[in-house]
Design a protein around this nucleic acid. Sequence first.
DNA 1: ATTGAAAGTGACACTTTTGTCACTTTAGGC
DNA 2: GCCTAAAGTGACAAAAGTGTCACTTTCAAT
Lengths: 191, 191
Amino acid sequence: MARERKFSDEDLFLATKELLLDHGYEGFTFGLLAERLEVSRSALYKYFGNKEELIMEFMMYEMDQFMDKLGKIKEYDRFEDQFDYLLELMMSHPNIHQLIEIGRHVPVNNQKLEEKNEKLDGLHLNMYQSLIGFVRLGKEEGKLKAHIPDTLIVGYILQSFLVPNFAQIPHSEWVQSIKEIIREGMFINNS
Amino acid sequence: MARERKFSDEDLFLATKELLLDHGYEGFTFGLLAERLEVSRSALYKYFGNKEELIMEFMMYEMDQFMDKLGKIKEYDRFEDQFDYLLELMMSHPNIHQLIEIGRHVPVNNQKLEEKNEKLDGLHLNMYQSLIGFVRLGKEEGKLKAHIPDTLIVGYILQSFLVPNFAQIPHSEWVQSIKEIIREGMFINNS
DNA sequence: ATTGAAAGTGACACTTTTGTCACTTTAGGC
DNA sequence: GCCTAAAGTGACAAAAGTGTCACTTTCAAT
């Protein structure tokens, strides 16, 4: 009934993600995105009224995907298994933390955006609670140090995957080392 | 002989730093900076031909300051003392890593910028070598785990100070915990 | 084959940022 | 007191980004 689209939602959101990570919120433009998708700029306005709306839609898409997977952490009972699962997850979404930060820069001007923003805040809260739950379990099981603040443990795990691998250390070795530092630190233990 | 300036270099570079961290490279404008300094936009063009030049100058200023202090790490012989010194230093320059990343986004158009860019690359190399030297010493003294890549150790320490302290944990507790995670990780050691 | 709904486009007016320039202001040396 | 060099300004034109609109293209159901 209608003409075939030149790009899928996945294409669009992928391009959006790359451009946001490259240029940041203020450097992201409809022109850049249109160029990347090889369509005219005005075509994009058929789907999104403006940059703010587009980025909010993107954030919801990204967070939904991430939360789908993060929610599954509850399927593991033991903390150690949750830990392994979480680290795997973070490897496949290394910059979720960065994206959320970029999302916070979006100015909320009108009613429509206000609603989306509240939904997004809800997703962030879910994410935060999931992760805090994970930390609490770790402390209850006597695996995580009780005196380190929950928020630092969460922030630290999210942040760990942003260390740039300039020297091109092979992926598996890199992940293994990150995991070890998180667990036991980088110092040799003389106890 | 000349009129008094309305802002010092320090004022200017401090405002530049804050705006860059807030808005990123592409969101930084002469208009914003002029507003912050309460001068006209055109006044700024008396000192810097354009945004690229200004940011390059800022990066050199920032890196010079940081390297002055980082260079002093050699005054400590023992690795443990160097480690303490480095962490103190990073606390007072928590976003040096971020700023360097922003600096990399500056497009190098002309000869003049090319020169500054090379100088800046030199400073980055110095910084990198200093930090790698620190890690090597740690490994030689048997303090740091030998099998973890040098670049990961360096990146990890730099990254640690970017974990956002949303929950407003008191500064000293926060720092203490970061230090502990870096050294011995967040897991309880059952050995 | 016709047609209408969705996809896509180029052109336009508007806003923001950029860089320049002729001009004014100010303070210290004479 | 006057001169002048540096500091600062407002106005301008050019460039880049935004949002809209009338228009064309395409596909499939009839």
